[in-house]
Simulated assay, not measured.
Amino acid sequence: MKRILLLAILAGGVVTNGMAQSKGNLNSLGKNDPKAKAILDGVSKKFSQLKSVVANFVLKIEGANNSVTDAKKGTVYLKGAKYKVNLDGQEIISDNKTSWTYAKDANEVTINNVDPNSSTLSPAKLFTNFYDKDYLYRLDGEITEKGKVLQNIEMTPTDKSKNVFKVIVSIDKKNQNISKMKVFEKNGNHYTYEITSFTPNTNVSDATFSFDPKKYPGVEVVDLR
């Protein structure tokens, strides 16, 4: 579960790219909102043209009464389908073939093969249309927050058995960037991922997206490949 939460900061990008390519799924209320599609198209187009991304974010965990129970800062690095996420003593790294999950407190790394057909929420899906059939979406108005005009897009999964029943992605109208995302679970918990800085086309080396055990003396390796 914690791994999914770490990766979900990128869900906005994953979802916007997939939603923008949607062919207009139907629900009981009709087709997906064309206004929302136009916004997602713009974000998707801009994002797909970037060579790399480094983004800092804050993850806020809220209980059912909307009180913040925890807040963590993190950084995500993206280069094509490769990614690295740093958050609260954990690192999740993938070169799109192998993934490494490192826990600092245990000094342990777990290694897995990347399954391209997995339904797990992953940054590896960022440049695909993986989510084009998994969500329905609509524009839920605009708000002004911290001097930015945000366009809120509400998304609901087509699979009602999922624990997540709603996601709200907030798009910076001026810059066409994802500003934040709020995930709603059926158990009443909310997770808000707010991007505090977004730096495109930085010089991120390929070595960022592999795990070098020599840099972690005494690390225990759990190889599940």
Rank of each mutant, 00 (worst) to 15 (best):
L7M: 06
A8E: 08
L10F: 03
A11S: 09
G12Q: 03
V14S: 12
V14D: 13
V15P: 04
G18A: 13
M19H: 01
Q21K: 11
S22R: 01
K23A: 02
G24N: 00
G24D: 00
N25D: 02
N27T: 14
S28C: 05
S28Q: 10
K31N: 12
N32C: 13
D33L: 03
K35C: 03
A36T: 07
K37H: 12
K37I: 07
I39R: 14
L40K: 06
D41N: 13
G42A: 15
V43F: 02
K45E: 11
K45D: 09
Q49I: 00
Q49N: 07
K51T: 06
S52A: 05
V53W: 09
A55N: 07
N56R: 12
V58C: 04
E62D: 12
E62R: 14
G63M: 05
N65P: 04
N65Y: 13
N66E: 12
T69E: 13
K73E: 15
G74A: 00
T75I: 08
L78H: 03
G80M: 06
K82H: 12
K82Y: 10
K84A: 09
V85G: 15
D88M: 03
D88T: 04
N96Y: 15
S99L: 10
A103S: 05
K104C: 04
I111S: 10
N112S: 09
T120N: 12
P123E: 07
N129W: 02
N129Q: 07
F130P: 00
Y131A: 14
Y131V: 10
D132A: 13
Y137N: 00
E142H: 15
T144G: 09
E145Y: 11
K146N: 13
M155T: 09
T158K: 10
T158N: 11
V164Y: 03
V164Q: 04
F165L: 01
K166N: 03
K166I: 03
V167E: 03
V169N: 08
I171A: 00
N175M: 11
Q176Y: 11
K186E: 02
G188K: 08
G188C: 07
I195Y: 12
T196M: 10
F198S: 10
N203V: 12
V204S: 01
A207S: 15
T208R: 11
F211Y: 14
K214P: 09
Y216P: 02
P217A: 12
G218Q: 03
V219N: 15
E220N: 13
V221S: 00
V222M: 11
D223G: 02
D223F: 05
L224G: 04
